[in-house]
Design a protein around this nucleic acid. Structure first.
Length: 184
DNA sequence: CCCTGATTCGC
DNA sequence: GCGAATCAGG
């Protein structure tokens, strides 16, 4: 995505409105927050009220930072699928949830349907961050909410635990629900 | 840890 | 010019 006049105008407006770089990046789409910040600086419209620095001016770097080819940091651009084929303890929770919804015709399917995307017992899931797909990163929970075919579709977005596509709440829920399910 | 903006520098 | 990598701070 390139910086068209319109996108620059929107950037200026949102920046002036006090939105953070990542928020602006999300609204613009197709760019990372770094890209936004970089553009802001090039446009020379940084220095917005707040002063983060002042003490200890950043020393210049002498060694070039190592660059990893194909690496993706925050924000937009190339990104692997949220579903990515990654599994968690015997199957994706995503597919499990979808399967449960699709299996309504099965006699005892009711036991499968309702609870699947819901907290159980005293396990409380804090309010989801409701991130769109474009806002997910490697470390955001990819537990889906809503119907992918509607506008009401978003992801949990909490920080995930290491090596897990889900946050501690959804990783735990998926695990516990899986164990509770008794085949009869 | 999460986030923020700032900076450098390879492309 | 662009933006990832990195830094410094909250």
């Amino acid at each position: 995505m390139s910086w068209t006049d319109e996108r620059v105008e929107l950037l200026k407006k949102l920046w002036a409105d006090g939105l953070s770089a990542s928020q602006i990046a999300a609204k613009l789409g197709g760019v990372s927050r770094n890209a936004v910040i970089g553009k802001v600086h090039r446009l020379k419209l940084s220095g917005r009220a707040k002063s983060t620095k002042s003490s200890a001016p950043r020393p210049k770097r002498t060694t070039a930072p190592p660059r990893v080819a194909g690496a993706v940091h925050q924000g937009g651009g190339t990104r692997t699928s949220a579903y990515g084929g990654s599994t968690v303890r015997g199957g994706t929770a995503v597919s499990r949830g979808m399967t449960a919804t699709a299996l309504k015709q099965s006699p005892d399917a009711e036991a499968l349907v309702a609870p699947d995307l819901r907290p159980i017992e005293d396990v409380v899931v804090p309010i989801a961050k409701r991130l769109p797909l474009t806002e997910l990163s490697e470390n955001t929970c990819k537990w889906p909410y809503g119907d992918p075919l509607t506008d009401e579709f978003y992801f949990c977005g909490h920080s995930t635990e290491e090596k897990s596509p889900y946050c501690k709440y959804h990783g735990k829920l998926a695990f516990q629900q899986n164990e509770r399910r008794r085949p009869r």
